[in-house]
Design a protein around this nucleic acid. Sequence first.
DNA 1: ATTCAATTGTTTGTATTATAATAAACAAAG
DNA 2: CTTTGTTTATTATAATACAAACAATTGAAT
Lengths: 141, 141
Amino acid sequence: MTESIESYALDEQVGYLLRLANQRHASIFQSHTLEGLTPTQFAALIRIAELGKCSQNRLGRLAAMDVATIKGVVDRLRQKGLTVVEPDPDDKRRTLISLSPEGGEMVARMKDVGQQITNETLKPLTAAEQRNLIRILRKIS
Amino acid sequence: MTESIESYALDEQVGYLLRLANQRHASIFQSHTLEGLTPTQFAALIRIAELGKCSQNRLGRLAAMDVATIKGVVDRLRQKGLTVVEPDPDDKRRTLISLSPEGGEMVARMKDVGQQITNETLKPLTAAEQRNLIRILRKIS
DNA sequence: ATTCAATTGTTTGTATTATAATAAACAAAG
DNA sequence: CTTTGTTTATTATAATACAAACAATTGAAT
């Protein structure tokens, strides 16, 4: 049995390593974040700040989240009082999402924290490796 | 509001890019996998094959999964008939996990598929970039 | 202009993975 | 032998993702 396994090294597969890297990043994120914001919620918040008021679906597409995922994320952000949800008067299918004042403040505060999180995640790497990783990840995303 | 955001480019943060890379890999994985096996379940299966019979906790540690996560994963693998679960006669706390014959066959078949999945995930990169990515990911995991 | 098919947007149900808290079994020291 | 601390496993809860269903809009052909 064993010899047929040796040839497949789990510890060198890109999928396995991506999961580990994500785990480490999530753990660093959690130790820095405010109000229990998750990386996904944070990403959505930043996108809303960039886009201004927009439909839930559009937000999901631009934040790389499934329609069901973005709904859950927006719901939780609204529960935390960070977003405002309202129907679109021009299109009855749509729900418009925007930042609440508290959401705006949160984004401002989280920007610095976000940079810290990135720095700590990349800390084991040289400056060249850091640039390389970002460049390569963008190519396979 | 906008100018305070410009300085934080979500699309270049390592955490966001890791999530995107994971999404793409998961999607490729799903299009190749047998019996609806997830990347996590696959990793656990490979580890069991490497380790032989071992406790659930030890398996979790070596597959980089939380105690609760590995329990869920093992449960689902058992439901699919791929693993065998039995109490440890020497330590009543422990549950011993091993591959069923079907699990062994699955591992053998999945090895090739796993390589294909890795290749397809890395396809947008040059050979040097592929090696670089693996090396760098190992450093930050 | 009207109808009908195709598209777009949202929601709901279900599955998987992850975090936190609890309980049971064991080991080691007094 | 009992107390104290550690390891192992389970349960409850939360977050994310996929699939299917449903509702509103758009557009094309008559």
